[in-house]
Design a binder for these strands. Sequence first.
RNA 1: GGAGAGAUGGCAGAGCGGUUGAAUGCGGCGGUCUUGAAAACCGUUGACCUGAAAGGGUUCGGGGGUUCGAAUCCCUCUCUCUCCGCCA
Length: 426
Amino acid sequence: MLTLKQIQENTEAVIAGLKIKNFDAEPYIKQILAKDEDRRNTQKEQDDLLSQINVISKQVGQLFKEGKTDEANEMKKKSAELGEKQKALGTKLDAIATELNDILVRLPNLPYKLVKPGKGAEDNEIVKLVDDTIPNLPADAKPHWELAKDYNLIDFELGVKITGAGFPVYKGMGAKLQRALISFFLDENTKAGFLEIEPPLMVNEASGYGTGQLPDKEGQMYHVGIDNLYLIPTAEVPVTNLYRDVIVSSKDLPIKNTAYSACFRREAGSYGKDVRGLNRLHQFDKVEIVCIEHPSRSYETLDKMVAHVESLVKKLGLPYRILRLCGGDMSFTSAMTYDFEVYSAAQKRWLEVSSVSNFETFQSNRLKLRFRDEETKKTQLAHTLNGSSLALPRIVAALLENNQTPEGIKVPECLQQFMGCSMLTK
RNA sequence: GGAGAGAUGGCAGAGCGGUUGAAUGCGGCGGUCUUGAAAACCGUUGACCUGAAAGGGUUCGGGGGUUCGAAUCCCUCUCUCUCCGCCA
């Protein structure tokens, strides 16, 4: 969430910024400023009372020691009265703080200066296009769900039987391809200086709030009611929460983590033509990168992360494009996002395979993730960034479709050492 | 799942109703000494809210209670450890 300081010091800029995200913040901002003023005044009042009570209490102790019982009892009475008032103020303060917080968490993150306004996906800006590897497939080229069946790589029906739609079963070389991609991505990431993490696949409520999935995306996550745990929708959640309530040393920045995890998404309300095969699933594999960076360098780091993800897509030999999302298509929490899409030649469409974002202090404010500034010696919120590197299903879809030949499906060179072959055959 | 013990600052570890925000040690930072370093010695060192500042307030796992006053007493939740059970 945005910090009160941001809102107080740059009120107009915040309102203007959120307009780019098509969010009319003005009425909320007014409420926030009013509530905050109320909060400060109430707290001052309460603090003064507490201060008086503290002074009296010390005197009571002293008077008892001196044997002045009558005087002490007199003071006790006075303090008890103040205590009543103080308690009432405390209750009021809690209520105000809750109201303030409820409004604050509903405000999306401010977009970065490079983000342009726009309504949705159609207004995203293509910053790079590499389409010279789009293959010339024959007219009878098959989509990946058919190839997966022909080559016995993925069984969607079996998944439906044992679990439900959106839970594919990978078999034989299909399963091995998953493992190959995960290994390849993790190896490349660790080579680039990311520390590998294997996180839990379930998180508690506090973690859900920390990265912002709760409360707004409650229905999107699988919930294990008996233990009140959530299946992670992305490794971003457990990995970023490693740093919840942590003050890191500024010399440790940037912190670079990578993690493979299965990801679980209920995707409530989405069905139909766009979700065939691997295009959208309830469970899928993904390798994630997470960075924690000094505010002055976070956009440099974002660029480096984008360059890194690009190197992966390049090595896989897939046609790709990089988009800078417009205000209307960006997520609630992001300040700037680059999406990677690969071209799926048989479906003749671009598929999103990665989303790399800078959240600035939006997550760290909730997480209380700070670092100590070397100069001022004060704690300051760090910037958090993350991206997929990469999500597997659509990569698999594109690889199968783009690399199909009459002889079989070609395995990209970078995966051959993991697959033990250069061609998938029937 | 059953029985018991515990949770205090970056870490270790005292305190068990009244100048205790918290002894002591380690670590960190600054200094003296040294050509430099180590050692030794001296000083300093939690976080948060509020305030221009001085100051005030909160915080000893979380929440609630008793009291004029709680790290200290009571209730509750969470977590950790030991033993038993179960088990990859």
